[in-house]
Design a protein around this nucleic acid. Structure first.
Lengths: 157, 157
DNA sequence: CGCGTCTTGCTGACACGTCAGCAAGTACTA
DNA sequence: TAGTACTTGCTGACGTGTCAGCAAGACGCG
């Protein structure tokens, strides 16, 4: 590999700082979420995704694809959340193999209470730090990466 | 919480896509790194950080602070990397409590072989997708978050 | 020095994620 | 309809991260 195209100083700096932002921001929002609502980020992802559908119901297969999780990971995580009464499982009417994950009343209530606090946390540590131009730039950068990594525009997201 | 300041449409969109970029980019670079070099991202972080110092040596305490890892996490991870002969442990001359983590010859060689492939992966999935202006914007955004979350500008990174 | 406190690093128990493998159901094809 | 292959979801084993707790050494003050 004689002809490796190393990063320029500006590129290297941006990459390093992106990685550090990622680490710090994750740590902080996770800490806030756990302190405020007793949830992990993954718990919150599951609850908020479920709530996007009218009845709070998703087929396991679709939920794991949407979250970019393995079906195994979803099964484990849903099992743990089920024990905490945040979600439930029901057989699927159309397909006897299928399982439908459902938000319980307690799941709805937990999410309702958590959402404003989580939004405040995201504002505090990211959104309110940036100008509208920077928000637009972040969106555009993320869009390019998402398109490149082929998230299937029609599909998940 | 009647007066919650929810996100605007543009902010919400940027936040969601940032999160998705994060997930996709992590998955892809981790997959590439493992396929090309048999390393995890955390392995690579440890090796490349060690290599920044002349002798490839870091005090445990300093390394965990630099990586934003708990000392426990570092101890576990170094133990595993030690079994693979990528790093070694030595007692610290100045402080009998201390441990010094050292890159082994095999660790150097592994990193030397992995680096160009990893850079290519980062280029392919991020850097080469962006204009110089977008690189600058990403750097500036990350800088704001890092400053806000108090990474101690003089300290780590 | 002698004592209490802080720092450093390690360990064990437990929570979470991945992977291989399995059982049951569906879909395609002859 | 029977046979084969695919899909769906679960489980167990194992690697990794977090947390509480420990032992040894450093530090500070009388």
């Amino acid at each position: 590999m004689a002809g490796t195209r190393w990063l320029t100083a500006a590129q290297e700096r941006a990459w390093r700082r992106y990685r550090r932002m990622r680490t710090l921001l994750d740590l902080q929002t996770a800490r806030d979420l756990n302190r405020d609502s007793g949830l992990s980020e993954t718990d919150y992802d599951v609850l908020s995704t479920l709530s996007e559908r009218p009845g709070g119901q998703w087929r396991s297969r679709d939920l794991s694809a949407h979250l970019l999780w393995s079906t195994s990971r979803l099964a484990h995580h849903v099992g743990r959340m089920e024990r905490r009464r945040l979600v439930g499982r029901e057989p699927c009417a159309d397909d006897a193999r299928g399982a439908v994950i459902t938000l319980t009343p307690q799941g709805w209530e937990t999410l309702r209470a958590a959402a404003p606090l989580h939004v405040a946390s995201v504002r505090r540590h990211l959104v309110d730090l940036l100008t509208p131009e920077e928000i637009a730039a972040l969106d555009s950068i993320a869009g390019k990466v998402i398109d490149h990594l082929g998230d299937g525009p029609a599909d998940a997201q």
